[in-house]
Simulated scan of single mutants.
Amino acid sequence: MAARSTINREVKLARHSTAELLAEHFAVKECDVPTPCQDDVVVRNRWFRVSVSTRLMAREGAEAIEGIPFPPLRPGDTLADAAIGEVIHSGSTSGVAVGSLVMHSLGWREFAVVRGSECTVLESRNTDPAAFLGHGWTAYAALTQGVQIHQGDTVFVSSGAGAIGSMAGQIARQLGAGRVIGSTSTPDKAHWMATELGYDAVVTRGNGPLIDQLKRAAPDGIDVIVDMVGGEQLSASIAVANEGARCVLLGALTAELDSKRATLQAPVELDGFQIILKGMTLRGFSASEDASDMFDAWIHQQEAWQREGVIQLPCTIFKGIEQAPLALQEACAGRLKGVVLVEL
């Protein structure tokens, strides 16, 4: 491949979002593939991940948000996220062979120029992209390193149809949970969670107070809380929690996906006396920081569970880079299931 003459297509931020994130905030632009250096590889991307964290990155004024974990996007910037692709050019010192299937961090474009040292070579060409690009490893690390599942535990997973939650409920079951309860936004997703993912009960927004729904779904209380949402869902689950309950906090979608003002501030009112009297533990957890060494363990474990037929890797796939902005719009609106991928 003559890298400097190949036309690339990339998804760029066209203008900042001030409210709901829409496909029109982004544009697919043609540009040249950058000239690779000796330690670079050129990758033809085959899949890349669409993450709702982009909602915060694309917000006007994101650069002023203290503690933002991702680089803020400016108009004209190309988006980036985890991707899998085939190496079609390899620099003399890159250490990665042409034809290798690799994972890297420069999705949202058809071709990527990546340092060989920043690529992970995947052993099998028949890889399920959802295993590597999905957040199963985040859920697995949280349920093995962030908290411990005891045999027969009742586990509550908020946002149970999302990229993390759709895996967390299944993983909790395999680790010994006796009853798994989830939350979601629509009856359609609730039905899918119960019939496809094996949730024992699902509570939904708009179907009455969440605390009343949780009391019905967990008459014997909750032992483990896996929270991605915050707000009312977190406070309600703590109110229904048993003595010694363990809570691992993985996100705060009430803040990240706020249609008026995405932010890192996620205030919630909790009953501190109940947390003390019940001897509960609450832990914030980031798989990339607290358990980065768990990724390989997750890959091997999910392969074993897949062979046994006891777990699936839910994903929603959009085909073609032109569909990527729509995929992001729908993901941020909470209308999709599992990890969201774009296939090129």
Rank of each mutant, 00 (worst) to 15 (best):
6 T>M: 00
9 R>I: 01
10 E>W: 01
13 L>R: 09
18 T>S: 12
22 L>W: 08
22 L>N: 09
23 A>P: 06
25 H>L: 09
26 F>R: 01
27 A>W: 06
31 C>F: 00
40 D>C: 00
42 V>E: 02
43 V>C: 12
45 N>M: 03
46 R>P: 10
48 F>C: 03
49 R>D: 07
50 V>A: 05
52 V>F: 15
55 R>D: 09
58 A>T: 05
58 A>G: 12
59 R>N: 06
62 A>H: 06
64 A>P: 11
65 I>M: 07
71 P>N: 01
75 P>T: 04
76 G>D: 04
78 T>M: 03
81 D>R: 07
85 G>I: 03
88 I>S: 01
96 V>N: 07
96 V>I: 07
103 M>A: 14
103 M>W: 14
105 S>Q: 11
109 R>V: 01
112 A>E: 02
115 R>P: 08
117 S>M: 12
119 C>N: 10
128 D>V: 05
130 A>P: 06
136 G>R: 04
136 G>W: 03
141 A>H: 06
143 L>E: 03
144 T>L: 05
145 Q>W: 09
146 G>Q: 03
149 I>K: 01
152 G>Q: 05
153 D>W: 12
158 S>Q: 06
160 G>C: 09
164 I>M: 12
167 M>D: 11
172 A>E: 07
175 L>G: 05
180 V>F: 08
187 P>N: 02
194 A>M: 13
199 Y>W: 13
207 N>A: 15
207 N>Y: 02
216 R>H: 14
216 R>T: 13
219 P>E: 06
219 P>G: 08
220 D>I: 12
223 D>W: 06
224 V>P: 10
234 L>S: 00
234 L>P: 02
236 A>F: 04
239 A>I: 00
248 V>E: 05
248 V>R: 05
252 A>T: 13
252 A>M: 13
255 A>E: 13
255 A>I: 14
259 S>I: 15
262 A>R: 05
263 T>A: 09
268 V>Q: 00
274 Q>D: 08
274 Q>C: 02
275 I>T: 03
275 I>C: 01
276 I>D: 01
277 L>P: 07
282 L>E: 07
284 G>L: 09
284 G>R: 05
285 F>E: 12
286 S>T: 10
288 S>T: 15
288 S>H: 14
290 D>A: 11
292 S>K: 12
301 Q>M: 14
303 E>C: 10
315 C>L: 11
318 F>L: 01
322 E>V: 00
324 A>E: 03
328 L>E: 02
339 V>L: 06
344 L>K: 14
